[in-house]
Amino acid sequence: MSNDILNALVIISNYILVPGLAYGSQLALGALGITLVYAVLRFSNFAHGDSMAFGAMFTILGTTWLQSKGISLGPLPTALLALPLGIIAAILLCLIMDKLVYQHYRQQKSTPVMFVIASVGVMFITNGLVRFIIGPGDRAFSDGQRFIIKAREFKRMYGLSEGLSIKMTQGLTFVIAIIAMALLFWFLQRTKTGKSMRAYSDNEDLALLSGINPQRVVFITWVIVGTLIAIAGVLYGLDKSFKPFTYFQLLLPMFAAAIVGGIGNPVGAVLGGFIIAFSEIAVTYAYRKFLIYLLPEQYEPDGLMQLLSTDYKFAVSFMILVAVLIWRPTGLLRGKSI
């Protein structure tokens, strides 16, 4: 009996907890970028998903090159070595697009919706570049060791019938995301430049009065956002696989994460990312096996015991988004909105 409970826990960890932590980290990194652009530049960036694909693409190109030279990181994916290339590419993309596109509307003091339309133009270009350079198809670029913990070994070690497996990419995603977030929060809370970013986001006029240079704030913001974009894009691509279109589709869960947490609020973005990820996985998971372990035999379910089919995972983020828009438009952690 107690083994049944353990087995049920392992199932939940294996199919909900571990994937949720990995996916949540990816969404959180993406939502952080969206929320920072919103907080400082005051618009919803529709090019965010495609920029992630752009950063991931350069990392893939770098990975392929490194692999052709026979360079690898042993058990870790080679992509980590090529990540700096992706980061630089994403930062450059952001800065160039800011210079060519967004700067003009900032000077004109245009309405947020003009920025959004401009970001649609940037999205077209970025998307086109990605498809043009690397093609629209699937690209798996993860190498090195596949698992940190293998299900079979886990079963043998603990004598359970269910095994826990943790993929290398899942572990890496979580660790790198935590490091990136810790660095970001340290920067925002502890450094003078980070504080000036927060001040600018809080009250632009007063920031100007205090002698904070808006151009510098915008520059730093894009550098940070570009870094987050590339990291999120690469981690997602490593964990799932790289396909340009899926990055566009990440927009909805990422926006939902940012809004649910309170748009403009970085802590909220992280919280929102994990909320969306866990809800998505928990609602679309089939609980049949889990219940078989826990329920007495006569109540064993015969259906899949799945609330929603996985094809509707978008619906989950959307439902949460709608609920938040109706009941708490400022988000769980009061972002700067309306």
Partner: peptide
């Protein structure tokens, strides 16, 4: 709500309609 929220909500509803 803010204009961007309508954008995001409509983006969501269209993805869901297609999924359905």
């Amino acid at each position: 709500l803010r204009s961007d929220y309508l954008a995001i909500a409509t983006l969501g509803i269209s993805e869901i309609i297609i999924a359905v």
